Simulated assay, not measured.
Amino acid sequence: MTTWITICDTCKRDDWHEQTHQRPHGEDLAELVEVAAQGRGVRTRRVSCLMGCKHGCNIAIQAQGKLAYTLGDFLPDREAAAAIVDYAEMHAESDTGRVPFREWPQGVKGHFVTRHPPLPDTDDA
């Protein structure tokens, strides 16, 4: 299954202001994550809002049949993008989506907002 990194491209951190920023911080982070993910074992996509405005910049890491995670409060920089992609690759390599804490890249620690169980395979669950 493909692990996806979904990046909110409309996120604005607390310091965003139209007089000092030409575009949302989310666009900056999305661009950096897309570059960092090239040639790696994950895919990226952008969405207009993940509704985590208090935690901007937000991303989600998801794959069919696995735990899914929302992470936020990232700076839109190369270090954050690299850590996000590194974690997403670990998620992709895991059968369940669970990555042991000791293996997390330092750059994602403290950024987890939510964890979601996988959807049931049938309507009976």
Rank of each mutant, 00 (worst) to 15 (best):
W4Q: 07
I5V: 05
I5P: 13
I7P: 13
I7D: 08
C8T: 05
T10G: 11
T10D: 10
C11H: 08
C11R: 05
C11T: 04
K12S: 12
K12D: 08
K12Q: 14
K12V: 05
R13P: 07
R13S: 02
D14M: 13
D14Q: 15
D14Y: 09
D15L: 08
D15R: 15
W16V: 13
H17L: 14
Q19T: 15
T20L: 13
T20E: 12
H21Y: 10
H21C: 07
Q22M: 15
Q22I: 14
Q22S: 15
R23Q: 15
R23W: 02
P24V: 07
H25N: 01
G26P: 00
E27H: 02
D28I: 04
D28V: 06
D28F: 00
D28W: 07
D28Q: 11
A30L: 06
L32N: 10
L32Y: 10
L32P: 07
V33L: 00
E34W: 05
V35K: 11
V35E: 02
A36Q: 12
A36K: 10
A37M: 07
Q38V: 15
G39S: 02
R40G: 08
R43M: 06
T44P: 01
T44V: 06
R45D: 14
R46H: 00
R46N: 04
S48G: 15
C49T: 09
C49F: 04
C49G: 13
L50C: 02
M51W: 12
M51N: 15
H55Y: 14
H55T: 09
G56C: 13
C57S: 02
C57I: 00
N58K: 03
I59E: 10
I59D: 06
A60R: 06
A60Q: 05
